[in-house]
């Protein structure tokens, strides 16, 4: 049995694969977005002066980094609806379950990234903002946050790419994302190589786009006057 190139191409350009890739990408974007927001809150709480509050955030990070993501997804999809009645409703789809599980887990990692990014901002920055009469919220938004983003961008890009791949775990809770789509076609055709290859191509495309976006956002956070595009690329590459 040889590699059936036509079958591979027809899978690659099929609406199922495109839809599966779309679900993976949308799930990854939403989960990463929620994880960044929740992670930022956790990081702030982690830096609070109140020891009890601080340890709550520490406990969260400990818990969600310790448990395998696959188990988290299985618990949320299979176990929780047996215990919590409202989760038996129609609204609780595999997509929602995966979104919750992936964001909760990722938030623990983002909390650590954002905590170190917050710590990296010179304390003189907030001092200067306060001396100008800014409120704590204004200092955070206008002074600290842009500098946090710059530091957190590369590791967050890393996490985001990881997230795209982690969405494949949701295939076990019957979400028809990219991997589940490939598996379904394999069940019909028994053609592993062609179907997995098509899925791999989609992952490669998605991650390539994300890397391109990340590079351009990082250029925006260089904070020097705009160099010609080529010079900017060289500077980023260094």
């Amino acid at each position: 049995m040889s590699f059936d190139f036509n079958l591979f191409l027809s899978a690659l350009f099929s609406s199922e694969f495109a839809a599966g890739a779309g679900i993976s990408l949308v799930l990854a974007i939403l989960a990463q977005l929620l994880a960044v927001l929740l992670g930022f809150l956790l990081a702030l709480v982690r830096m609070s002066s109140h020891p009890v509050v601080r340890s709550l955030s520490g406990a969260y990070v400990w818990f969600f980094r310790a448990i395998p993501t696959l188990i988290i997804l299985l618990v949320i999809w299979n176990a929780l609806p047996q215990v919590i009645t409202p989760l038996r409703g129609e609204w609780f789809t595999p997509f929602i379950a995966a979104l919750i599980g992936l964001s909760l887990t990722e938030a623990a990692y983002m909390a650590e990234i954002l905590r170190s990014a917050l710590n990296s901002v010179d304390s003189g920055q907030a001092l200067a903002g306060r001396a100008l009469g800014m409120t704590p919220a204004q200092v955070m938004l206008k002074v600290t946050l842009p500098q946090v983003i710059r530091v957190a961008l590369p590791p967050t890009g890393n996490e985001f790419i990881g997230m795209v791949k982690f969405t494949s775990l949701a295939s076990v809770i019957s979400l028809t994302e990219l991997l589940a789509t490939a598996e379904a076609r394999i069940a019909q055709t028994f053609r592993y190589a062609e179907m997995y290859s098509a899925a791999v191509i989609y992952y490669l495309i998605i991650v390539s786009i994300l890397m391109f976006v990340q590079r351009n956002v990082e250029i925006k956070y260089r904070w020097s006057r705009k160099l010609p595009a080529r010079a900017a690329r060289i500077k980023v590459a260094q």
Binding site: D122, G124, Q125, L127, A128, G129, R130, A131, L132, G133, M134, T135, P136, V143, P146, Q147, R150, Y221, W223
Partner: peptide
Amino acid sequence: PERILSRQRRPVGMVFQKFNLFPH
């Protein structure tokens, strides 16, 4: 409270040893 302090700080300007300009 910090909210009141931030208003009370406005009439007094400060220049720091290490400038503390906003790099972004």
